[in-house]
Write a protein that binds this DNA or RNA. Structure first.
Lengths: 352, 352
DNA sequence: AGTGAGTGCCGAATCGATTCGGCACCAGGC
DNA sequence: GCCTGGTGCCGAATCGATTCGGCACTCACT
């Protein structure tokens, strides 16, 4: 006895040919009402449900869209921005009745395995939280001919890029600090490369940076505050933000900056902790700002000064781009606006 | 000109038949070394990569495993336990070279859409963060004949259940409080049903609860502290924990319990906030405990008293069960041990 | 030289649903 | 009675890779 009923079985039971059964069930064609009813009854009796793989082979659509997150889930989803992005993405994808498949790394590797990448049926893939130029996964999927969408990178011809106005946002934040009188501003950056390095960012390091948003945010800030030093965090986490901030703050008071700009809110939260540990008042002794406008309820009652990006909208825009690609159109790049949101963590430069 | 190269094209270019080309590329058979080299060269020149859908049709395997999370991602991934569970699951799945597809709800519905569920190619599915008895997604997937694994539920014949010893853990926690002298203990429970209700849990509500873990944790606690009242949170979030705890704590001091047991660490974090807001010292005026042993770094320096469950191991166990199912075996149920971890949030019952 | 094993490759079937061209049948019109 | 138009259904091809049975050819051994 065969395990699952096939269309052929349904057709036999209803006394029609498979082709007629198919038309009757899909409802897309010229079938007598009585026949259709017979086929439907037969399908119900046999508990028939069509094999999605066979349907995919014919239609060329699997209903699966990949989301590449360049880390293991444990770390990727610690970042509220990533979560919100995926939420917006799924919102848009769910109206296409398409599923989201996570292409993540694991403890061993920082990205999906090549075996996975070539085995899986994918109608499209979104580079969600990597922005990494020259990603092996990117190369592989492109070679496979999978339509791609990039969020914050990588940049490639024929791949729609969904991004925010990083430079402008950072510049606005810098002007905000400038107006408050800050001249000694240090940046705590997101990782420039995957090598887990923590420490000062020199020109060479910046030039070899592979993360588009990290580079652009620094460039934007320096367009207003030229030469502002930068320290790189080894990852995007509270702990890393704290460690990197400590490198900057744990020095004689005379050498200490009056403001710290973190390239993400999560890093900024770490910087706040470092400041508290070192007995620095915020914003009395030190101003701290972030980037993202992430949802960090546990920071309350502190309201972090930050640059708000429309993260969910970014996810939806990526989903829309996928829809366009699947419809055979070529979506345009999208650059979403950002907005400075002053909070309680920045204030006038301390006297003396 | 055809878009992507097919095996037939490669074969033609190498001057062999498609069947030989297939064998040559898969490396599984009797092919002359020279022929194999020719085929591989042809494949490389054409940039050939096999169509996963066609391979799936033949092999009956798509390489996709679904993870049902009964909420939209934004909420599901706010829960560090869910994230850690999925991390453990992917770790195990990645060695099967299998991808994880998220079957999530969206703003409209609390679960994946039926269209998605019947369209997607799935080798298996894991009910990851629902534990919901009588889930429509469960029924649908079972009807499709998709092998299933349940984490904390639903319970069904032929579906391996991966769970922890909820009752025992809650009982141990109750004894811990009992030893500290607490008699007036109130429980803040996880949702019993999906209806978003917040408030006291009576016998009927408990009986009609659809979440196995919530029920069992309450039963376990009451096995030691019979009749301990329970208040239900409308969701598993810090905000909900705070709201539910406030219902219990914002009463005359004489009516106030001396200890609050939350059914998750996230809820407990909310309870801590409510206590702080009401000016209650923890553990001086009130002891607070959680469940899960979740990673909540922002709680520091407070160390929450909690029952630690091996969440990542639970995910790996679910992944292992999937592997067994795919191998044609029938995995056994798994019940993992839990351990009480006393922290700084529980102490002796206050005098008076 | 003839028989045996053994190697290298091909043809055809298979996986299961979908779709298009076309056949047969019936009703209506002249 | 013949032709036209239309409806209802079927057969066969298609999507692309995989696999098994089998054919032809080579080499070694008697």
């Amino acid at each position: 006895m065969r395990q699952r009923a096939r269309l052929e079985d349904v057709a036999a039971r209803a006394g029609v040919s498979p082709s007629t059964a198919s038309v009757a069930l899909s409802g897309a064609g010229r079938v007598a009402a009585a026949t259709r009813a017979r086929v439907q009854a037969a399908a119900a009796e046999l508990g028939y449900s069509p094999d999605p793989v066979a349907a995919s082979l014919r239609s060329g659509r699997s209903g699966v869209v990949g989301a590449v997150v360049g880390e293991r889930l444990l770390y990727a989803f610690r970042d509220p921005v990533a979560v919100q992005l995926l939420d917006g993405l799924t919102e848009e994808l769910s109206r296409l009745d398409v599923g989201l498949l996570l292409l993540a790394g694991d403890a061993m590797r920082s990205g999906p395995s090549p075996a996975q990448l070539s085995r899986l049926p994918l109608d499209a893939a979104v580079f969600a939280t990597c922005g990494l130029e020259d990603d092996p996964a990117f190369t592989l999927l492109q070679a496979r001919g999978v339509p791609l969408v990039a969020v914050e990178g990588p940049v490639a011809a024929g791949v729609p890029l969904i991004a925010i106005d990083d430079e402008r946002g950072s510049a606005e934040l810098a002007r905000h600090l400038q107006r408050l009188g800050h001249a000694r501003v240090v940046v705590v950056t997101l990782p420039m490369r995957l090598d887990g390095r923590r420490g000062p960012v020199d020109a060479e390091r910046l030039a070899r940076g592979v993360y588009r948003d990290a580079r652009r945010r620094l460039v934007g800030l320096r367009s207003v505050l030229p030469g502002a030093p930068a320290v790189e965090a080894a990852g995007n986490s509270v702990e890393e933000g704290e460690a990197a901030a400590r490198l900057v703050l744990d020095v004689p008071a005379a050498d200490r900056p009056t403001a710290l700009v973190a390239q993400s809110d999560v890093l900024a939260a770490g910087a706040l902790r470092a400041a508290a540990d070192l007995g620095l008042q915020v914003p009395g002794d030190l101003s701290v700002a972030g980037f993202d406008g992430a949802d960090l309820p546990w920071l309350a009652p502190v309201r972090l000064t930050t640059v708000v990006q429309p993260t969910a909208a970014k996810g939806r825009a990526a989903g829309h781009a996928v829809a366009e690609l699947l419809a055979g159109r070529t979506p345009a790049d999208v650059e979403l606006p950002v907005e400075l949101r002053p909070g309680t963590t920045t204030g006038p430069v301390p006297p003396g």
